[in-house]
Design a protein around this nucleic acid. Structure first.
Length: 873
DNA sequence: TAGCAGACTTAGTATCGTGCAC
DNA sequence: GTGCACGATACTAAGTCTGCTA
């Protein structure tokens, strides 16, 4: 895939930049039609009431929509008789032109001349008189060199602005009100409330385990004892949750639908054709199996009541210790493996017919600090209430982390912490600077050390306990098959660790209680039992979704789910489907490419922007770039949300024409830095899109991911922007493997070829990682080994085996160096059709274990089973 | 039809556990 | 036997995209 430009990527997670929001807000308001020049200047001075956050009259999408609506009238005068630059661009571009000379004339300039955006828009977006005086330079200028590359002016400015802005929390009030509005019922989870008042707690064994023991007492005062089964019936009877009515009707409908589906399938199967009959047979078998599995789960009894005796545990552990049993177990597991890919696919909407599980495993309760471990305020020891102390420990544990040095983190933490303090504590604790968490920090460091230093037996015991929990809560029954759950534990309380410059970092992530959790399971299954004294928020039966449980987290007010492991049928099937869509794209991609090339000359600005954006998505594997709510997350962008400040145009650079320099923060605030030559029309269009815009303005102001995806959907069913990433990743792997593999090489050399192909994809997709802490050291050690082996060879004492070893080591060195900052895992797991790798292994005699570890082999079991050496993506 | 919520995938980092060198 | 390094796994943040609603 020589057509994809991947050079020049450098890593840098933005630490101090990306805080352009205020500036950007002002600019966008201008695009909304609110911004006349005078207003813009006021905005620059930070005049109140002009930024989008004030009054929230327009969400990002709203602003964009307004501009786009006006934009429909902005039609380019030129019809596109343009001579395209046949030399420009890369291999990829040339391939598009292999049909021969394309007769066109220079289009873009005409377009630009005839459509001065500012004029056509009549002041909307590009205010009159706001034309740049000369060629618009990059907002940041050259910037200074930093570790990750150039530190750009926009980042610096943004950081400064953010600092000036202080730590005001925009939109927080609105959000809070929204939360109070009813969606999140527990503004303060009962746990925290009562902890303040009741430091001494009675803990039941079960409650301790499931995070509910403390709650028994809490509930006493507030809510009536519910009996704690939290089942459907209980919800219907009204549990004081205030939602039971709608819950009931919703649930009813869903449950009934589920039954109808089942009935339908059976009726249809009766007089069906062979395939249908086979399906019916399979279903019967599944039902049988499901019954058995269900019985098995039932035998184990409700989670909360189950108590395994120590004796039993010992027996179990002894048994599993024997190698023979291990082998047997493995064999059995192998036999039990569900080859769902050999079964006929079911209809898409219904995800399961039977779903049974034990609910989430709750994070352990807080254990108070020993009396000798103290918190100090202003140099004086201070006894904190339990809730306050617990939150203090969250901060103390992170003391040696960079997070705690950040002002936003500190401010968010302190504000949330104060909210949870008693009145008296609030009076005393006025400044975070005067808080001394060192002793608490040390306590946890020591505790951690002690845990590591435990004798082998103790460690083994702990592991067995963990395994037991995994066995009990980590699996579910899905359509008669035991499936592994991906994340069966609720997220423990702590401090939010947003990535990059996240405005909410340091905020308190509250404890998830059973009352926050919605359970999803089949109606006739054993409904999970909530911890004693607690009840679920809701129990529903929705077989159109794949999650087992969900709750709303308090930081972003978004949903979190408990879902299945990637090795499961539900995930595997979806994965397979994803690669099939990407393969279908292969068949139409040439057509799509010629279409977007044609659209570069469109009379409509919107169409041109879409065509250029699509070119970037295809050529550079950029993400779609949805609009994000400002102030809620770090300022990151993707293709559609690129701003003018994120690209620089160079008519000539490094001996190449029409160069575009990209520099922006993408997903997870990972810097995307790349210099690419583009085709002349693209270059000219970009110039046009940037005209009369400020650095903070959207580059593609007439484009949204929604409109882009609906356009793609029309071109090919199932096609969306992200499919291009999957397609380009997989096709790159396939092509690189073909180019790099030498059948005569040994396995080590072949693996190096594979890793290089994998690496090409990782670079393309900008999958980066921090250089491992031990990189230098381990590299030196490896090189020392090479030297030793080399010396032996010189003395001709080396045997063939050692030569091989040397070769292997050399390969390792190369591989390691090349892989220093590249994360191969992400592409391997998410973008590369596993059948390509499987076919390659089979073709070149490389054991599949060399490519995929156990987990990966489980995930891609379907591909390993079905792909032969001739598989072509 | 825009906006939003919900459902899902993608992603990097933290932690765990195993195997190897000494 | 011990400590270290590294791969595996766990965790959860941060994206994408679809379908519903006003």
């Amino acid at each position: 895939m020589g057509d994809i430009h991947v050079q020049g990527l450098k890593r840098r997670r933005e630490e101090d930049g990306g805080k352009e929001r205020e500036k950007k807000k002002g600019k966008r308001d201008l695009k909304d039609g609110r911004g006349e020049l005078g207003q813009k200047e006021k905005l620059k001075e930070g005049a109140p009431g002009k930024g989008r956050s004030h009054g929230k009259s327009d969400s990002p999408r709203q602003s964009k929509a307004k501009t786009a609506r006006v934009g429909v009238k902005a039609v380019l005068a030129e019809d596109g008789k343009v001579e395209e630059d046949r030399k420009g661009g890369c291999d990829h571009d040339r391939r598009e032109e292999k049909g021969g000379r394309v007769k066109e004339e220079d289009h873009a300039q005409k377009g630009e001349d005839e459509l001065q955006p500012g004029r056509a828009e009549n002041g909307v977006g590009w205010a009159e008189g706001a034309m740049p005086e000369g060629p618009r330079a990059s907002p940041g200028g050259e910037g200074e060199e930093t570790e990750g590359g150039k530190k750009h002016g926009w980042a610096e400015k943004a950081a400064k602005r953010q600092k000036e802005k202080g730590q005001e929390r925009k939109g927080e009030e609105t959000k809070k009100k929204k939360r109070e509005g009813g969606k999140v019922r527990h503004e303060k989870p009962p746990r925290f409330e009562s902890l303040k008042e009741e430091p001494e707690v009675e803990k039941t064994e079960e409650g301790e385990r499931r995070g509910g023991g403390k709650g028994v007492k809490e509930e006493e005062g507030g809510e009536p004892e519910s009996g704690g089964d939290g089942g459907i019936k209980e919800e219907r009877e009204g549990s004081g949750l205030g939602k039971s009515e709608s819950v009931e009707s919703d649930e009813k409908v869903k449950v009934e639908n589920g039954l109808e589906d089942e009935k339908d399938t059976k009726t249809k199967a009766k007089g069906a054709k062979p395939a249908k009959r086979r399906k019916a047979k399979e279903e019967n078998a599944r039902e049988e199996k499901s019954k058995k599995a269900s019985e098995k789960l039932e035998k184990e009894g409700p989670a909360q009541k189950r108590k395994t005796t120590e004796e039993g545990d010992k027996k179990k552990s002894k048994k599993t210790k024997t190698g023979e049993n291990e082998k047997e177990k493995k064999k059995k597991e192998e036999e039990d493996k569900w080859k769902w890919w050999e079964e006929e696919k079911t209809e898409d909407k219904v995800k399961w017919k039977q779903l049974e599980h034990k609910g989430p495993y709750f994070a352990p309760l807080y254990e108070p600090l020993p009396d000798n471990v103290k918190f100090y305020y202003d140099g004086q020891p201070m006894k904190l209430s339990l809730a306050t102390e617990e939150i203090a420990t969250f901060y103390a544990k992170m003391l040696d982390h960079e997070y705690t040095t950040k002002e936003i983190f500190q401010n968010n933490f302190f504000r949330d912490w104060k909210e949870e303090m008693t009145e008296k504590e609030q009076e005393i604790i006025q400044s975070l600077d005067k808080c001394d968490f060192k002793e608490i920090h040390k306590y946890f460091v020591d505790k951690n050390e002690a845990r590591k230093a435990l004798p082998k037996e103790e460690k083994q015991k702990l592991k067995e306990e963990t395994d037991k929990i995994q066995e009990e809560y980590g699996y579910c029954i899905l359509d008669g098959h035991r499936e592994k759950i991906g994340n069966f534990k609720t997220e423990p309380p702590g401090l939010f660790r947003g990535r990059g410059n996240h405005p909410k970092m340091g905020m308190l992530k509250k404890r998830i209680m059973p009352e926050d959790v919605i359970i999803n399971c089949s109606k006739d299954s054993q409904i999970p039992v909530p911890p004693e004294g607690h009840k679920w928020k809701e129990v529903r039966c929705d077989n159109t979704v794949t999650w087992l449980a969900s709750w709303t987290e308090n930081i972003q007010n978004s949903l979190k789910y408990i879902m299945l492991n990637p090795s499961s049928k539900l995930k595997g099937e979806k994965d397979w489907q994803k690669y099939e869509v990407a393969r279908r794209l292969k068949g139409v991609v040439d057509k799509i490419r010629s279409q977007y090339r044609g659209d570069w000359k469109s009379r409509e600005m919107k169409t041109r922007q879409r065509a250029v954006a699509l070119y970037f998505i295809d050529k550079l594997a950029l993400r779609a770039g949805n609009e994000k709510e400002e102030g809620e997350t770090a300022d990151t962008v993707g293709c559609c949300s690129l701003r003018v400040e994120h690209i620089k145009l160079y008519p000539e650079l490094d001996g190449q024409e029409h160069m575009v320099e990209f520099d922006f923060l993408g997903k997870d605030s990972i810097r995307y830095y790349n210099k690419v030559p583009v085709e002349k029309p693209v270059f000219k269009n970009l110039k046009l899109f940037m005209q009369n815009k400020d650095p903070g303005d959207d580059l593609f102001d007439r484009l949204s991911t929604g409109s882009l995806n609906s356009y793609l959907q029309d071109l090919m069913p199932g096609l969306s922007a992200k499919v291009f990433r999957t397609y380009n990743a997989s096709i790159t792997l396939q092509e690189q493997l073909k180019a790099l593999t030498n059948p005569e090489d040994n396995v080590a050399a072949k693996l190096l070829a594979y890793n290089r192909a994998n690496r090409a994809v990782a670079v393309l997709c900008n999958h980066q990682r921090a250089t491992p802490k031990t990189f230098e050291k381990s590299m030196q050690a490896l090189q020392a080994k090479v030297r030793v082996a080399g010396a032996v060879e010189k003395k001709k004492k080396l045997l063939e085996k050692i030569k091989e070893q040397l070769e292997k080591l050399n390969v390792q060195v190369t591989d390691k160096e090349e892989n220093k900052q590249i994360a191969l895992g992400t592409s391997k797991l998410n973008y590369l059709d596993p059948r390509i790798s499987v076919a390659w292994c089979k073709k070149f005699g490389v054991p599949i274990e060399k490519i995929y570890n156990k987990t990966q082999r489980e995930k891609f079991a379907w591909a390993i089973d079905m792909a032969d050496e001739d598989f072509e993506f």
